[in-house]
Design a protein around this nucleic acid. Structure first.
Length: 110
DNA sequence: ATTATGACTTCAC
DNA sequence: CGTGAAGCCATAA
């Protein structure tokens, strides 16, 4: 297993695993919760590495606009299907009603 | 050491 | 919300 810049990756996984079913969060939100809002890209990297962690629901992590950027990494429409299955409405590769399904750790987990 | 790249964000229009 | 530019940071070559 490759390097893990610290427990940063671990922290990311912890938070992502706490995302409730039918809700989504963003890389920036997680990063912010970890006290590194300018490290959103690294959260993405952590997710990339998370491919080895089935327990991490990476499909519930989208970008700030609710766009399913991870779609390509999941392959096919796996992500969209899975989210839809959980009750999240997906349209044109984006989460609908984002305001309702968005889950911000720095708020919900406060 | 330097350049390029990316599962991002924010600001301006 | 959409597009384009700039900022930020770890990894890869």
């Amino acid at each position: 297993m490759p390097y893990q810049s610290n427990n940063f990756f671990q922290e990311v996984y912890e938070v992502v695993k706490l995302v409730p079913r039918g809700r989504v969060t963003s890389y920036g939100a997680v990063a912010a919760y970890l006290g590194a809002k300018n490290r959103a890209r690294m959260v993405g990297w952590a997710m990339n590495n998370a491919g080895s962690y089935p327990e991490v629901p990476a499909h519930r992590v989208v970008n700030r606009s609710g766009e399913l950027t991870a779609r390509d990494h999941f392959g096919g429409n796996t992500m969209a299907e899975r989210l839809t299955e959980e009750g999240v409405t997906i349209k044109n590769n984006r989460v609908q009603h984002l305001k309702q399904v968005f889950w911000d750790p720095s708020v919900e987990l406060l």
